[in-house]
Design a binder for these strands. Sequence first.
DNA 1: CTCCTATGTCACTCATCGGTGACATCTGCA
DNA 2: TGCAGATGTCACCGATGAGTGACATAGGAG
Lengths: 205, 205
Amino acid sequence: MARDRQATEEKILQAVGRILAEQGFHNFGINAVARQAHVDKVLIYRYFGGMPELLRAYAEKGSYWPTIEEVAGDNPEGFGRMPVPEAVATLLCNFSRAVRKRPVTLEILAWEAIERNELAKVLEKVRKDFTKQLYRAIAGSRGRPTGDMAAIVTLLTAAINYLAVRSRKVGKYGAVNIRSEEGWRRLESAIRMISGRCIVSQESM
Amino acid sequence: MARDRQATEEKILQAVGRILAEQGFHNFGINAVARQAHVDKVLIYRYFGGMPELLRAYAEKGSYWPTIEEVAGDNPEGFGRMPVPEAVATLLCNFSRAVRKRPVTLEILAWEAIERNELAKVLEKVRKDFTKQLYRAIAGSRGRPTGDMAAIVTLLTAAINYLAVRSRKVGKYGAVNIRSEEGWRRLESAIRMISGRCIVSQESM
DNA sequence: CTCCTATGTCACTCATCGGTGACATCTGCA
DNA sequence: TGCAGATGTCACCGATGAGTGACATAGGAG
């Protein structure tokens, strides 16, 4: 109708985002996108190629993972001034908040346990870089971690991912209300405690 | 062919299990079950009613969650003899192993983040009872936990679920190889450490 | 043996999906 | 002005899904 390819592509990509955020991958498909965008599906094939390319194009536009700045503040090196356990705890809590407010990210996290699609692949790479930067920020902190810090951080990020994903469908997990701010405060203080007591640095303990 | 309803129902239910274990919910459906069971799909409707009832019937036959015995041994009360932190750690590690060896359970865990179906509902109830018994076993141990033990246990079980589910599709998470026994040993010792240092009991510390 | 019903088989409907070919129309360029 | 390619529209294909109605037959009850 409007004869404006750029605008059409934009409508299509926005439709992808809306469907993922509101209905998830389960109801995702070429037809659904075309409907949502009020665009003929032929145009999706013409402009993007197909489903994988469409997802890839969408992936390149969005921010599906926290940036290091979002989690560590404007100068990640600033973490060098606090003891390791405190740095780790703060990073993890910030990470938790950043992930929880990204509905599309939560959908991808849920779906990559079912099927590894283009979005999951992109997210994987981003996440890898993120992790590397995270460890760099920690490495600058005061004190040397002893014990298997990597294993502990793995456990805690896994827990955060799981609970954040799950909170979309269920209100409680165990005794904790994972839909309320209060529930997440409990989890955060548990994270702080774990970090404080298990990632021992020579100087701070 | 064989004119044996009971045998046919059995074939159908076994087909459900095979599909879930080998292909997951993604490729699950009436037609798929009928194909797998070498049975006409009409019989599924006649004998079970439809998809929800079929899943419910399947759910009632299987053990999709560890039993308390599997995790706490033959007499859960026996945990009363060890200190709380050690009891918690042991229960969690046993739980991890029990979950990881149940492919259908892992599939349900992955899928319930996408859609809450009949199997997920059944699993929910079983899990609730299991948790209750777990806490009872802990309550019998020596010493009083301080701090938010529930939050810590929530975090650790969430982490176990997430990593177990994820290990079906991806080999590594962070720095840990979640497909190898060695990786899980690292996680287990981290769990023991967390439990030992963060669930403080008056007598043992 | 005869009939009735439980069991199994077949053939279909209707909806949706991914994907494609053919056609209409707009717009910028020669 | 007229043409060509870019853009948009429409109608279709084959495959697959859930679900149903009609029919065939085996086997037990009378």
